[in-house]
């Protein structure tokens, strides 16, 4: 004897299929994901693809270009200013990221302790991150001013120096100065995110370690650090990406000067593409950043994320 279900299937196979499809998780999932996917396509993939395409053309502002293959890159390979900007970008990213990580981590551990006005202090630490970049850049612009620098002024009053410090006028000073400004701005992000990570580590682990007679260093080395690596990976990926692509700080403080000593790839790209009108060449400079960025991401995802659940598998 046929069951009810079978009879219904015979009667209306099409409707039955529709019900199955409608309740299929993958089918539904597709529709739920569509808006996000459209967003990504429209605002990420398309501009990125367009940028890469432009880098293979001789497009200028207001005039469509033609495909010229690798010519922009060949030109850039022969351009000392471009290579200087590559050097500057690496110097800026590596030095700033390492120091931001070290100081940010230290700050996070300090903030993780119990202390009076904890919430208030944590809020204050975030300030450099909250202030709009351009505002902080202008503040640094004054701090580094050759004639009016408060640092030079204080040191002179203290009798430590006789001449104002040439913060932004001498290439290496200028590099150090902009890196310092970037560090100042970037530390809160690292510190607060790592602090959040620290607070997810169960206190029972430390209690057990204390009973076993572990030193503070051992606790840090064998509990804090391993428990924190996933967060570190994420924070450092973002930190490196932000630093590598920095634009505002440099643009507001030095415009890439003196003599291109602080030009980053991002600022040079803007100068050539928008101010100079050579969209193709500017896009090529931006495109040249992509391999480095990919490398940085790969390193932190595959180098720092050793646990299986981080790579989509069940943990041991």
């Amino acid at each position: 004897m046929a069951t009810i279900a079978e009879r219904e299937e015979v009667a209306a196979p099409a409707a039955w299929h529709w019900t199955r499809v409608r309740n299929n998780r993958n089918f539904l999932g597709f529709w739920f994901m569509l808006p996000a996917a459209a967003f990504l396509l429209l605002f990420l993939t398309y501009p990125l693809g367009l940028g890469i395409w432009l880098s293979f053309t001789d497009t200028r502002i207001g005039r469509d270009g033609v495909f010229i293959g690798l010519e922009n890159f060949v030109w850039l390979a022969d351009d000392p200013v471009f290579w200087l900007s590559v050097f500057n970008t690496f110097l800026y990213t590596i030095v700033a990221s390492v120091i931001k990580f070290a100081l940010g981590f230290y700050l996070a551990i300090l903030l993780n302790n119990h202390m009076p006005f904890k919430a208030f202090i944590r809020a204050i630490v975030l300030l450099p991150f909250i202030v709009p970049t351009v505002l902080s850049a202008i503040a640094f612009w004054w701090i580094y001013d050759t004639q009016f620098s408060i640092i030079s002024w204080s040191l002179t009053k203290l009798g430590l120096i006789t001449e104002n410090i040439n913060f932004l006028g001498e290439p290496n000073n200028a590099r150090a100065s902009v890196i310092f400004a970037n560090i100042w701005r970037g530390i809160p992000f690292v510190a607060i995110t790592l602090l959040a990570g620290l607070q997810t580590i169960p206190a029972s682990l430390y209690e057990a370690a204390t009973i076993d007679g572990a030193s503070r260093w051992q606790m840090f080395r064998h509990i804090t650090y391993p428990m924190l690596t996933p967060i570190i990976a994420v924070v450092m990926t973002f930190s490196v990406l932000f630093t590598f692509t920095d634009f505002q700080l440099i643009y507001a403080m030095t415009r890439g000067g003196p003599i291109n000593a602080t030009h980053l790839m991002a600022t040079l790209s803007f100068q050539r593409a928008i101010l100079g009108g050579n969209l193709g060449e500017g896009a090529a400079i931006s495109t040249a950043m992509i391999p480095f960025l990919l490398g940085a991401i790969m390193f932190s995802w595959f180098g720092l994320q050793k646990r299986k659940w981080q790579q989509g598998e069940a943990d041991d």
Binding site: D145, T146, N164, F167, G169
Partner: peptide, 14 residues
């Protein structure tokens, strides 16, 4: 005067 290598448009006004 020292520092002119860092000057942008506004520095000399100040």
């Amino acid at each position: 005067t020292p520092g002119t290598a860092s000057w942008l448009d506004g520095h000399n006004n100040k």
